[in-house]
């Protein structure tokens, strides 16, 4: 249904008013609807960053595919990394409905002009990191993304429904991996604890800066792209994780973690925002490695993409030829 159509003699204000009314009425904005330029730009930025995170996020986990310690775990991990590539594809498609091509977005990623989630700049040093990523990183991502299933922009909301289903599955698998390690040999238990110690704080940073420092939050909430504040979601995540850690038989590396009777939430210690800022600026442990590997995969693959385009141009039906040839020669 096309929702954003002004009733009569459309001036810019009429479009704006119709858009605001549609958002207020919880109607979905669709690709052909009028939307404010800033709304479009915010969505492109956010969806592209989300897509890039899926693609860069393949690296820390792919790092363990060749070393997975059992065939069952290897199959699970391969399937997960494959899903991430698939999520990247849906999200680039969602971004394309806003008028920006995948190639253009990838170029921006490679040039460092668009970001991806800071969490993927941390290294996977042991097998248990694969479990910690599933439990904590995917858990944080789900907490962030479930409200996006109700995002005002239809294509993004629909992509999120599909992504969240698969992410929940990955999260359970990560939890189960850690549980197996935690209940395993002493060496395995220690490996699991070490991974949780290293991934806990970076996972909390995934919710973004505190509410009073979050640049885009107010506008995104007004547009119903975002439904909850960073701090609200972060608190929700901590409240979920504390009992899960206990069930796992692992501790969380925060001496200030205490149950607050009055609020009905877990209070937790201060986040090291200087680390967060350093990672965002490109100075995390793996920023350089992640982006240069991504760039290299793209550059190394250029001749393959060129070959596919040249072949398509040669073998296209005659009526499509000019168009395809044009694409190939670009």
């Amino acid at each position: 249904m096309t929702t954003v159509q002004p009733d009569t003699a459309p001036g810019p204000e009429a479009y704006e008013a119709a858009f605001d009314a549609a958002v207020a009425a919880e109607e979905r904005i669709e690709p052909r609807d009028w939307m404010p330029d800033a709304y479009r730009a915010t969505l492109v930025r956010q969806i592209a960053q989300h897509a890039h995170s899926e693609i860069i996020g393949m690296q820390p986990e792919a790092n363990w595919i060749t070393r997975a310690p059992s065939l069952r775990r290897k199959a699970i991990l391969m399937a997960k990394v494959q899903d991430e590539a698939g999520h990247g594809l849906y999200l680039y498609s969602a971004a394309e409905t806003l008028g920006t091509g995948r190639d253009e977005l990838l170029d921006k990623l490679h040039a460092g002009r668009q970001k991806y989630s800071s969490i993927f700049n941390y290294p996977t040093l042991t097998w248990a990191d694969v479990g910690a990523i599933g439990w904590l990183v995917d858990g944080a991502a789900i907490t962030n993304q479930v409200p996006l299933c109700r995002c005002s922009y239809g294509p993004y909301a629909r992509a999120m429904v599909r992504v969240c289903k698969e992410e929940s599955f990955h999260q359970r698998q990560g939890y189960e991996l850690l549980l197996e390690l935690s209940r395993g040999t002493e060496g395995q238990h220690a490996m699991a604890q070490d991974a949780v110690d290293r991934w806990w704080w970076p996972s909390l940073m995934m919710f973004g800066p505190p509410d009073d420092e979050s640049a885009h939050s107010a506008q995104s909430m007004a547009w119903k792209i975002k439904r909850h504040s960073n701090d609200e979601l972060r608190q929700r995540f901590v409240d979920i994780c504390v009992p899960q850690a206990e069930a796992l038989g692992l501790t969380l590396p925060d001496p200030d973690l205490t149950w607050n009777e009055d609020t009905g939430h877990w209070d937790f210690g201060a986040i090291d925002w200087s680390e967060f800022k350093a990672v965002l600026k490109g100075n995390g442990p793996c920023n350089e490695q992640r982006i240069s590997r991504r760039r290299r995969a793209h550059e190394d693959g250029a001749w393959v993409r060129d070959a596919a385009a040249a072949y398509a141009a040669k073998h296209a039906p005659v009526e499509n030829r000019t168009h395809r040839e044009e694409a190939a020669s670009r």
Partner: peptide
Amino acid sequence: LGEWAGHAPVLEEEVALANIAL
């Protein structure tokens, strides 16, 4: 084929190669 993960020339091939590997 699993060694290709994250290195394929296009995203569609990330999916295809992982699929064959699986």
